[in-house]
Design a protein around this nucleic acid. Structure first.
Length: 540
RNA sequence: GGCCCCAUCGUCUAGCCUGGUCCAGGACACCUCCCUUUCAAGGAGGACACAUGGGUUCGAAUCCCAUUGGGGUCACCA
């Protein structure tokens, strides 16, 4: 049995997704159970209604769970509740056990006092270690009196002397010398357990046998081990997964979006937000303090307004950008694991069958979006025509409803056919072809494209365009094939086919880049194409 | 800074455990050429790595040690 145990969040980021995927694959490959547990023991961060929004990302990826919160037919189970905040009475029983055995004690230092001690240690370049001698020596009666008096107190675990060895299926064994683990807090002043305590109790009670988590948790394992021993719990088998970084080696985080925005804002010299994007007060506070983050919606509207492209961080970002869930899973698997040999492309069925801890790599990976994009392209090209149309259209209905509503079914299908082999994402076709849904009378032309392809050349592109217009006007059948046969002889008479294709392209699309020209004309239709050409000619 | 972990092309990685078949394989990116109506896509080639220094050994990418570099961690966050 494995578990994925994130803190509540509306979004799943790629690192979390990889952890979930590996936990899922490992459990499924061993006829085991995959549990989702929500670690919501931090009251400050756990109030949102959207607290488990990330579950929809999990399901989109195809990662279902056997036990956990009930959500769209997933979850349930006999070991609940699966929200830690609902398990307080359970933890309380174990606190009392440790208190009674002398393995835990009350401590009364305030957060400020501890911060000061920490700062002092830091100043001397020493690690901070809580030594609980005076607290442990306190007479039970005094402790009781202070508790009765309503004084704020935490419960700390009394870590016994001795080195602690962590067995890890991925990293091997590591031994922390005595004194590395201090008397850490297991119950906060608000009565909630800390992460360490809740994890240990829940993993035992839920029957978790294998704990796969990110490497940043490695040292925490020592704390978990001493707790398990004191509570007479079984020790799960650990596997700490290598971290995933940005290409520049920095940690991947939602802050990266703010970073990109700050840079774009600075480049544009903006001192106030574009109207209708971000509240001016929020904006100036955000500009002033580089540690603050805009919320997702604000960030997106600001990005749209200033033409910045936010980096994809969350699984949902990738979905919106038109990546395929199966490709995300495939690619994520390759960050930290490989099946060996030269095999790179595989699905989650394969992963389930072949995933094993011994082939997990020890080194951190840098997340390479370019390779992801290449994988996405490969997967799209491998789709059947009908599949592609279905998936693009479903993406379009959600992300680009206006675009979809302005195209007839036939137009959309032609556009798909013209775009299939060149689409790296499901979104590209929409972003690259807005000229199609622009009204004929509203189309504007890119100045550079006009001067190069219409005004330039000898004779000018405009002359060829006018000639082509005459030929097109005589076409009764507006299909790709007949357009081609109508235009080709003329084009060839000019020597270079580009002489006619480029002026036409610019005239009907406004830009020098579009799908193949015959497809472009066919999609627009005769009336629209001629109207655009006429307006273009008139505008010169 | 203490402690822990890690180290193969720019990137993800195979090979390492069970030294020789590795003057190190694949993929993405890159470069060149071809195709071509734009952008892509596609085709054919190419360049590119065992961090350094010591051992062990007939022989080391593979085993050992040191150095260097990178990362993690040191919360009443998870």
């Amino acid at each position: 049995m494995t578990r994925f145990a994130p803190s509540p969040s509306g979004h799943l980021h790629v690192g979390g997704a990889r952890t979930a995927l590996f936990c899922w694959a490992f459990a499924k490959g061993h006829a085991g159970t995959f549990v989702l547990r929500i670690e919501d023991t931090d009251q400050k961060r756990s109030s949102d209604a959207a607290s488990i929004g990330f579950v929809k990302d999990l399901l989109w990826l195809g990662i279902g769970f056997d036990e956990g919160p009930e959500y769209q037919g997933q979850g349930g189970g006999a070991n609940g509740p699966y929200f830690q905040a609902q398990r307080l009475d359970i933890y309380q029983r174990y606190f009392e056990m440790l208190l009674a055995s002398g393995d835990a004690y009350y401590a009364f230092e305030s957060a400020d006092e501890l911060t000061a001690l920490r700062a002092e240690a830091k100043g001397k370049n020493q690690p901070f270690r809580y030594t609980g001698e005076s607290a442990r020596a306190r007479a039970p009666a005094e402790v009781q009196r202070r508790l009765d008096g309503g004084e704020a107190a935490v419960i700390r675990f009394h870590t016994r002397a001795g080195a602690i060895t962590i067995h890890d299926e991925i990293l091997g064994d590591a031994t922390l010398p005595e004194g590395e683990v201090d008397d850490f807090v297991i119950r906060k002043a608000d009565g909630f357990p800390t992460y360490h305590f809740a994890v240990v109790v829940d993993d035992e009670l839920m029957g978790v046998t294998h704990v796969l988590r990110a490497q940043e948790h490695f040292n925490n394992s020592a704390k978990h081990i001493v707790l398990q021993d004191a509570l007479k719990f079984r020790r799960p088998i650990y596997g700490h997964l290598p971290l995933i970084f940005n290409p520049d080696g920095s940690k991947m985080s939602k802050r990266d979006k703010d970073k990109v925005l700050r840079k774009a804002v600075a480049e544009k010299g903006l001192t106030s937000p574009p109207v209708g994007t971000v509240d001016p007060l929020v904006f100036s506070a955000w500009l002033k303090d580089k540690n603050t983050q805009l919320d997702l919606e604000a960030a997106q509207s600001l990005a749209l307004a200033i033409g910045a492209v936010l980096p994809e961080i969350n699984v949902d970002d990738f979905r919106k950008s038109g990546y395929l869930p199966e490709v995300i899973c495939n690619f994520l698997s390759l960050n930290g694991w490989s099946p060996g040999g030269d095999l790179e492309k595989f699905d989650t069925e394969f992963l389930k069958k072949h995933f094993d801890l011994s082939r997990v790599v020890k080194t951190a990976a840098k997340f390479d979006r370019t390779k992801l994009l290449a994988f996405n392209l490969d997967a799209i090209q491998a789709m059947s025509r009908d599949d592609f149309i279905a998936r693009v259209s479903s993406h379009g209905r959600e992300m680009h409803p206006e675009f979809m509503s302005k195209l007839t079914d036939a137009q959309f299908r032609s556009l798909c056919d013209a775009s299939h082999e060149r689409s790296k994402t499901l979104d590209e076709l929409f972003r690259a072809n807005t000229f199609i849904i622009t009204a004929d009378d509203a189309l504007t032309w890119d100045e550079k494209a006009i001067s190069k392809h219409l005004r330039g050349g000898e004779p000018t592109g405009a002359v060829h365009l006018a000639a082509a217009r005459a030929i097109l006007a005589g076409c009764s059948d507006w299909s790709v094939a007949s357009l081609e046969s109508a235009l080709k002889p003329f084009a060839q008479s000019l020597g270079n086919v580009g002489k006619i294709a480029q002026p036409l392209r610019v005239a009907v699309s406004g830009e020098s880049v579009s799908p193949p020209i015959y497809d472009t004309l066919a999609i627009l239709g005769k009336a629209s194409s001629l109207r655009r050409i006429d307006r273009c000619l008139a505008s010169l």
